[in-house]
Amino acid sequence: MSNASQTFDQGTAEQYLTFSLGQETFAVSTRNVREIIEFGRLTPVPMMPASVLGVINLRGGVVPIIDLRQRFGEGETRIGRRSCIVILDVSRDEVQQTIGIVVEAVCAVLEIPPQDIEPAPTFGSHIRTDFIRGMGKIDGNIVVLLDIGRVLSLEDMQQLASTAASASKQSA
């Protein structure tokens, strides 16, 4: 059983959706990607951390939208002509959640063979290392493979939300 899954891991290259954010290229497994939509009307939600931009109406469902750069502790993502929202299905601890992320531009869907994936560096990255699943090499360039379940972890965001809420309470 374990043998079989190992050969599967080595033999089949997983597909990744790459997108750019700031100066960098990131990638998420296409298994998490539900769809890509154009950047549209967003309703901000008060008393939330800045990384939660708000919510959108996705065919009758309400989906929260996250700014990854602010989640990484960097500046706001600039919204431009090529900006998109990538809708992701994130499941963590058996809780399924649909969350959207804002990206500056969607690049491509690529196969990255396992031998081209290096483990996450223990230092030298400006992003929390537990957010990184690995570093992929594509044509001599490095893309950051995100552990999207970790990045969009509900517990983390809830914590952020409650601190944001109490902070605004204090200031009010």
Binding site: R41, T43, V45, P46, M47, M48, V52, G54, V55, I56, N57, G60, V62, P64, V95, Q97, I99, L154, M157, Q158, A161, S162, A165, K169
Partner: peptide, 24 residues
């Protein structure tokens, strides 16, 4: 509200307006 917004004390849910926009 969903898990992400469960902590916001002043909100009890979302709704969708006729225009398609989300209201709180």
């Amino acid at each position: 509200l969903g898990k992400v917004f469960a902590q916001v004390p002043a909100l009890s849910g979302f709704t969708i307006l006729g225009s398609g926009a989300v209201a709180l």
